[in-house]
Structures are given as C-alpha cells and as structure tokens.
C-alpha cells in the first residue's frame, strides 16, 4: 500500500489546523495512504451525468420570518471562553493569516 507522502500529510494537517506529533505523522502516512487507495475503487464507477446527491430527501429551503429573538447575554456567550477580557473573546495577536 502506497503511503501518502509526508509533505502532503503536513500540508493537509496545516490546512486542518491539526498539530500532529512525529509519530502521528508517520502513522497518518500509512493509514491515509491505505484508505485513499481503497477509495480509488470509486473511480471505476461510471457516474457520467449522474447528479451528485446533496440531500437524501429532496426538498426546497424553508424560509424563516425576519423576526429577531432575544440574544444570549454577553456573560453567557463568553461563559466558556478560554480567553476573555470583559465581554470580548481574546486570542493571540492575529498576524497575516486567515481571512482573505
């Protein structure tokens, strides 16, 4: 079974924001490689012109009336926050990355 190249494993881990220890990386190479090889069987299934399913039971979106409901009090919204300053969430300084 071909392993997934380390570089690719690292790229995916970064994209998913998952810190992986060296041993985990090594394991991922092998396990992901095996699973992805197993997926390859699907490529043989003819699917030309077959619509991809997005909802098992087809339906249209229901629309919600534009009526505001009470918000959570800020104290509740922040109750579980690992880092907070008053009513604000706190994270390490944002530099560069992230949103476009």
């Amino acid at each position: 079974m071909p392993a997934l190249p380390r570089k690719e494993v690292e790229e995916i881990a970064l994209l998913a924001r998952l810190h992986l220890e060296a041993a985990e990386l090594a394991q991922m190479e092998i396990e992901l490689g095996a699973i992805i090889e197993y997926f390859a069987a699907l490529a043989q299934v003819p699917t030309e012109g077959i619509p991809p399913m997005t909802h098992a039971v087809p339906m249209d979106l229901r629309l919600r009336a534009d009526e505001p409901a009470p918000s959570l009090p800020a104290s509740d919204a922040l109750a579980g926050a690992p880092g907070r300053d008053g009513d604000l969430f706190v994270v390490p300084a944002i530099i560069g990355g992230g949103e476009p």
Binding site: G83, P92, I95
Partner: peptide, 24 residues
C-alpha cells in the same frame, strides 16, 4: 478552535499555535 468554548491551548504564543495545539 479553542476560542469560544471547550478545551484550548491557552499557553499558545501565536494564533496559529492556538489553533494547531488546541485541535491536537
């Protein structure tokens, strides 16, 4: 992501580290 609730690597120095280590 360790920002609004749940477990977090609060000792992370950078935002990236906060994400990566929390999600570990």
């Amino acid at each position: 992501d360790g920002i609004r609730f749940g477990a977090a690597a609060t000792d992370a120095k950078t935002l990236q580290e906060r994400y990566m280590k929390s999600r570990a």
